[in-house]
Design a protein around this nucleic acid. Sequence first.
DNA 1: GGCATCTCATTAGCCTACCTCACGACCCCT
DNA 2: AGGGGTCGTGAGGTAGGCTAATGAGATGCC
Lengths: 139, 139
Amino acid sequence: MPAIALADSLRVALVRMGRRMRRERADENLSLHHLSALGTLQQLEEPTLARVAAAECVKPPSMVKTLQHLESLGYVERSDHPSDGRMVLFRISDKGEQMIGETRERRNRALASAIEQLSPEDRATLERAVPIIERLAEQ
Amino acid sequence: MPAIALADSLRVALVRMGRRMRRERADENLSLHHLSALGTLQQLEEPTLARVAAAECVKPPSMVKTLQHLESLGYVERSDHPSDGRMVLFRISDKGEQMIGETRERRNRALASAIEQLSPEDRATLERAVPIIERLAEQ
DNA sequence: GGCATCTCATTAGCCTACCTCACGACCCCT
DNA sequence: AGGGGTCGTGAGGTAGGCTAATGAGATGCC
């Protein structure tokens, strides 16, 4: 399969899947991308706004809004950077940690049950594909 | 890897990839999802509004807007359904066909060149994963 | 054959989540 | 000390979804 055709079909699949996932948030208090930002906050070494935004493939002003919202809900706290006064470090609060633990499973349940119905080969393929897609997204 | 964890990482990867792709439309006249709708129009047997919307994983009112826009640009034409007066059939115009041919390659070029840098194994994995993701999206 | 009900496309109005541009605060370098 | 880059943030705009409501046409049931 030529790279262009693969890119095309990948694009179509991802757009549709994205819409499918977005529709699933009906009964949740936190949207998909808020949860994703919290996850990133957990992973990053020194989570400044710019770094979180970059990890989420989003521009800084967008991430400001997201983090402000999470902060207003008490899921995120901020502290000054020890040496650089321009930067702000964001970290997940205890309340945020707790909420993530409770929410993530419920959040992914529909997708997980669809995944459980895949054949073992398909599931293994999917598992190998995820980091590849992550890598493509970073560029 | 448990299904929940796979669902979680897949979700994160797809969200980021979606954002990355969306940002790539700078110099294009047609957005990602317009192009996708045109592609669906080409594939469907009897492309009524509801069917196109379903294929694109979108609600009918959203697809109305999309098709109206494409119609205003001359890429889509509509005709009455032969037997059911409630329905409308949408089809891609000659101008639309031509535009698709020109645009799709340019559109996918950045993604394709990222794909070309993958190892052959990764590329093969990706190729196998696409239809699996499509299937997940349909549910 | 006529009324109730259902389906389809459409409109109106809203919301989320991005973007760019502009700005003030701060860092660093000379 | 002061000039240029970087960081977070505010303002304002846009894209692309959604639900609810509406009107036209189909269908089903006496």
